[in-house]
């Protein structure tokens, strides 16, 4: 009698365990194959990482059999260092970071270029500053973040215009926008799809007009954020890198599709609680124009000539001791 009860209990327990295993998410084909990777962003969660967030929220990574931990970036974070230290398998880095790292022997490759147009541009008031050509910058006070990408871009622009440093006044820009609001400086570096939206809003409120100075219009291309991984991972696990890139770029493609605007904004809102809906809408529109400016050019396309120009700029400004041949470290983006 007791044996019967025991075997009945054992059968019930086995069935229960089996049922739980069947029902648990871990038993799904996607989860069974799930491979854990970490992805370090360049900056904080905001519209600039909309595609990354979209790919995560809408399970693009899971569909490729990946469990991706997206880590927020910040000024003190360096994705390339984290790749080497094994703390992340993928990351976002600016082009100058990649080229500097290569020149110091880092084992890094670029697998996608997120921004086709660099969001780093200059905001100015056309009522106070008329720019028809680069020569118009002569004698003006120009905002620049010393040590930042904008310094390299601005110095290249000045060189192109045949202007020496003493032909202009360089104003060191920090977090405080007061000098721009007070019109002490009328040429201010901004990220077009983040700070510029806030600044533009304030200027509109004050009834002031503003415009943007895009270095590309004057022939200076300096690549912005790109997705990187280590060459070691690419060689050891090409399939993982391929699946990650496909999932990520599908996420970006969907996030930038005007038909998905609401879904993209909702996804970003989960992470960026400080920005208002109207700000996010404006930021998305601008981000779209920077990430996917031409329908014929797929999201993530690596602009090789722009990379070469970026390397040349760093070389000319002695930021790297010798050429690194960056084109050898740019990996063709897979079809997605």
């Amino acid at each position: 009698m007791r044996d019967k009860r025991l075997s009945k209990f054992a059968c019930t327990a086995l069935i229960a365990v089996f049922s739980i295993l069947q029902l648990s998410p871990a038993s799904s084909p996607e989860a069974n194959a799930a491979e854990q990777v970490s992805y370090r962003l360049k900056w904080l969660f905001n519209m600039s990482v909309a595609g990354d967030i979209y790919a995560d929220v809408h399970r693009y990574f899971q569909k490729q059999g990946l469990t991706v931990t997206i880590k927020e970036g910040g000024p003190e974070r360096d994705a390339i260092r984290e790749l080497e230290l094994g703390r992340a398998q993928f990351g976002v880095a600016s082009a100058d970071q990649v080229i500097r790292a290569l020149s110091k022997g880092a084992d890094v490759v670029v697998i996608a270029q997120l921004f086709q147009i660099n969001p780093l541009q200059w905001m100015y008031r056309p009522d106070y500053l008329e720019i028809q050509n680069l020569g118009d910058l002569k004698g003006k006070t120009l905002g620049v973040t010393f040590g930042g990408n904008d310094e390299h871009i601005l110095r290249t622009l000045l060189a192109k215009a045949g202007l020496a440093e003493n032909d202009v006044t360089l104003f060191s820009v920090r977090y405080d926008y007061t000098p721009f609001f007070q019109k002490k400086v009328n040429f201010w570096p901004v990220y077009r799809n983040s700070q510029a939206v806030f600044l533009g809003g304030k200027l509109r409120e004050a009834g002031e007009s503003y415009a943007f100075f895009n270095p590309v219009d004057y022939g200076v291309q300096f690549v912005a954020n790109s997705v990187v991984t280590s060459r070691q991972l690419l060689e050891k696990k090409p399939d993982t890198v391929n699946r990650f890139t496909v999932a990520l770029l599908r996420g970006w493609q969907a996030a930038m599709d005007p038909a998905n605007s609401d879904k993209t904004i909702r996804a970003v809102q989960n992470y960026d609680k400080d920005s208002s809906l109207s700000t996010l809408v404006e930021q998305l529109e601008i981000t779209r124009s920077l990430v996917h400016p031409l329908p014929a050019v797929p999201v993530g396309t690596i602009d090789v000539p722009a990379w070469k120009q970026t390397e040349q700029i760093l070389l000319d400004q002695k930021q790297i001791p010798a050429a690194v041949g960056v084109e050898k470290h740019l990996i063709s983006v897979p079809k997605y």
Binding site: P75, D78, Q97, R100, A101, G147, G148, S172, R174, Q319
Partner: peptide, 19 residues
């Protein structure tokens, strides 16, 4: 954070350059 001189300013630039 905000000044335009001194070693803190130089460290900030070096960090920008990942040096």
């Amino acid at each position: 954070i905000a000044a335009n001189a001194g070693i803190g300013y130089s460290i900030r630039i070096a960090l920008f350059q990942s040096d």
